[in-house]
Design a protein around this nucleic acid. Structure first.
Length: 191
DNA sequence: TAAAAGATCCGCT
DNA sequence: GCGGATCTTTTAA
């Protein structure tokens, strides 16, 4: 599988968000390969109040201002990790939250990481769940998405007319923006 | 220094 | 559908 080129990320965030659908997250963990196809994303940009980068760079959101193609990971509610793909040029605080994956390689390990639950879709149908399944945490914050630990690769995109759009989930500010994109009818899309 | 909110998930009703 | 868990970061006094 072909790793995405750096230029992929250096485009308007909404465009990158849409194009991330179908791309594959490849995580190497403990000598094993875990991968999943992206089926749901949300875009965030420093010009709107829902983004962590809204108030400018801080210790926590620093990676969001790095160059496109960087990984931004943070802890939410003291419990769950969320992974974001940083977009646009260095200095711009923009990123795309990965909200759901369709498991490809290493599904047995993902299941184990998720407490051996039976419901297959519950392994990766949410931003916190997929990070737990892939063992992604803040130790990976700031890495380029083209390395041995974690990378993004080409994959089959949604078919024609298969992209859905809606407001983002679980936010209170800028809630009117329809910056969430997902593959229609994919069982792994959250909630 | 303190307080509150938060890009979530799970279990229970 | 609702509330609790759990803790980091941010903001206010």
């Amino acid at each position: 599988m072909e790793t995405l080129p750096p230029e992929f990320y250096l485009r308007p965030t909404l465009q990158v968000a849409r194009d991330l659908l179908g791309k594959v997250v490849v995580r190497r963990w403990n000598g094993r390969r875990l991968s999943g196809r992206i089926v749901e994303v949300e875009a965030y940009h420093q010009r709107e109040a829902a983004a962590h980068s809204y108030g400018g760079p801080t210790a926590r959101n620093r990676a969001m201002f790095a160059r496109g193609g960087t990984l931004y990971v943070y802890l939410i509610y003291g419990i769950h990790h969320c992974m974001n793909v940083v977009t646009e040029a260095e200095g711009v605080g923009a990123a795309v939250l990965i909200r759901a994956l369709e498991p490809l390689e290493g599904a047995d390990l993902m299941r184990a990481h998720r407490g051996d639950i039976d419901r297959r879709v519950a392994w990766t149908n949410g931003p916190g769940k997929l990070c737990q399944a892939l063992r992604i945490d803040r130790a990976l914050d700031g890495l380029l998405l083209a390395g041995p630990e974690v990378a993004l690769a080409e994959g089959p995109g949604p078919g024609r007319g298969r992209i859905g759009r809606s407001p983002r989930i679980g936010i209170s500010k800028a809630a009117e923006l329809e910056w969430r994109f997902f593959e229609k009818d994919n069982p792994y899309v959250s909630r």
